[in-house]
């Protein structure tokens, strides 16, 4: 069953792409298998214009006010925020670990840059994630082709510019195939 794509309202400012907000929260003590991950991830809604984005965003809790093991995901409509999605499986992500207190501002700057097409890497961007954890928060931006070094370098440089991060911030690029390997390594039977 194909869902109807959202369209901009009259007089609204269209975005280059439609996007979907997702939310996930991990139940403490449960293993993060693919199946439970997919069960825990919920769609919030999709939008096609700047105004529709603000209507969602203004009603959402700021990441810095979330508790527990929670994530917001903002992906292009039609791309699931999972490694296994066709758009993601050859891809990777830039990861930035943030000390507590920075997540709300960094997340907003990151998604505004993505929605406004500030990365200038064609069709490469898939989506962005903010992950709220116990001691630190993590933001990441996912792209389609992990092996495309010109693209990943351009995304890194744009991130530095739009996030206005402290100079000692460490940025790490991880391919999704590596993420899958390491997560399997943590399972008791692997």
């Amino acid at each position: 069953s194909k869902k109807k794509m959202v369209v901009p309202g009259a007089g609204e400012h269209p975005l280059q792409y439609n996007y979907t907000f997702w939310y996930s929260r991990r139940t403490p003590g449960r293993p993060a298998s693919t199946q439970s991950y997919e069960q825990n991830i919920k769609q919030i809604g999709s939008f096609a214009s700047v105004e529709q984005f603000w209507r969602f965003y203004s009603h959402m809790i700021r990441p810095g006010d979330l508790t527990g093991h929670s994530d917001f995901h903002l992906f292009k409509e039609g791309i699931k925020p999972m490694w296994e999605d066709d758009a993601n499986k050859m891809g990777g992500k830039w990861i930035i670990r943030l000390r507590k207190g920075l997540a709300s501002r960094c997340w907003e700057n990151l998604i505004l840059a993505m929605l406004g097409e500030q990365f200038m890497v064609g069709e490469e961007i898939c989506g962005a994630v903010v992950s709220v954890r116990f001691q630190e928060d993590i933001i990441s931006i996912w792209n389609k082709t992990a092996s495309d070094q010109a693209t990943t370098a351009r995304i890194r440089d744009t991130l530095r510019r739009v996030l206005n991060l402290p100079p000692n911030t460490i940025m790490e690029y991880k391919t999704h195939t590596d993420s899958i390997k390491y997560s399997l390594g943590r399972l008791p039977w692997a």
């Binding site: 400012h13 269209p14 975005l15 105004e51 603000w54 203004s58 505004l112 840059a113 406004g116 097409e117």
Partner: peptide, 21 residues
């Protein structure tokens, strides 16, 4: 084709002045 590019300042302005319905 052409790309729809918005800077942060413009996106924040759209938040303050929503389209009249």
């Amino acid at each position: 084709g052409t790309r729809i590019i918005y800077d942060r300042k413009f996106l924040l302005e759209c938040r303050r002045s929503p389209v009249a319905k």
